[in-house]
Amino acid sequence: MDFLSINTRFMDDVVNELQLKIERLENEINFKNGLISILSHDSKELFGTFLFLIEELEQKNISEEDFFTLLPQVKNDAKKNLQTVQDSIAWLKTQYGEFKIKPVKIRVMDLFHYLEERYAAQLKEKNINFYFKGDPNTFVTSDRILLEYILDKIFNNAAKYSLPGQDVYLQVITEDDQVVLSVTDFGTGMNEKYLSGIYTYNIPIFLGTSGEKGVGLSLKIVKNFISLLHGNIQIISAENKGTTVSIFLSKFIE
């Protein structure tokens, strides 16, 4: 191989590496811009609505009865706004300072019990049956905080879009040096045309089967956290049939 060929190959590698870095930076900038947009819009909407109601009450344009009738909606909006802030803080902690992955050995069945306990009230309210599939003695070495957050957000969507009385599964499959964790529901599902944009800010926000609200931020952060764990995510969904979200993790991370 002559010098020119070696130099050309080297330049191609440099260009490819630069393109990947540019793509990562563009994704990060888009994510941050979307995050700022969501936070500013939701905060303005929430406080604007609350201020409007107070002023209308003070000017006696609405009765106290009407005011308190509207408060549950304000409460729901406040909960949505708070969740957005909490998700943002969780992501920011991984972007600044000396954040490092802290691998620990985690029993997958413990993750199932974590979700089962955390969502006990919601599961009972919707009469959702939550089951575990796979070997209960399977372990994965990962960062517990990130992994619990990832499964929490995935399961939250599964419960949100499930109809009362339906089933949700957490399944574990071991493939060579990988552990695959899947959350499957049989709820409203999603039309295929929306799947390609699920990690962007162009996808519409869907209400849960009990009117639960969200801002579509969680899955974007989930994808970011999975990349920190050097894993991958796959979403398979069909409208009115349900959704399966799978995360592919190495058995061991450094």
Rank of each mutant, 00 (worst) to 15 (best):
V108K: 03
I173A: 13
L229Y: 06
A121W: 11
V14M: 11
I89D: 14
S218M: 08
D143T: 05
K193Y: 03
A159Y: 09
F31P: 00
I205Y: 04
A90P: 00
S227F: 00
K223C: 02
L4A: 14
K160S: 03
L35Q: 15
D42N: 13
D167R: 08
D77R: 01
V183S: 05
L111M: 13
L146T: 10
F186I: 03
Q73T: 08
E26V: 14
D87W: 06
T8H: 07
M1S: 13
V179I: 15
L146D: 11
Y96D: 10
K75I: 12
Y96F: 14
Q234D: 13
F31N: 01
R118C: 07
I198S: 07
F3D: 15
N240S: 14
K153A: 02
I36Y: 00
V180C: 06
L20A: 15
L115M: 15
T243G: 08
I198Q: 05
N30L: 12
P72K: 00
K213G: 03
G216I: 05
I150E: 12
G208N: 09
Y169E: 10
S182E: 08
K79M: 13
G242I: 08
S250Q: 14
T174Q: 14
N127G: 04
S237C: 12
N30V: 04
L115E: 09
Y96M: 12
D42Y: 01
P136H: 07
N137R: 02
L195D: 07
K133C: 06
Y199M: 11
K21L: 13
D87K: 02
M190H: 06
E148C: 08
S162I: 05
N81W: 00
A120E: 15
F130Y: 13
R118W: 08
G97R: 04
N16W: 01
F130K: 01
K105C: 09
G34L: 01
L39I: 08
V108F: 10
Y201A: 05
I205A: 01
M109A: 13
R24I: 13
D77F: 00
F99I: 05
L115Y: 14
I233E: 15
N137I: 00
E254M: 03
I101K: 02
Q19R: 07
G134L: 00
T94K: 04
V108D: 13
K75A: 08
F52D: 15
F47E: 06
R118K: 15
Q234W: 07
E17A: 08
F132C: 04
P164D: 10
L70K: 08
E26F: 06
L123I: 10
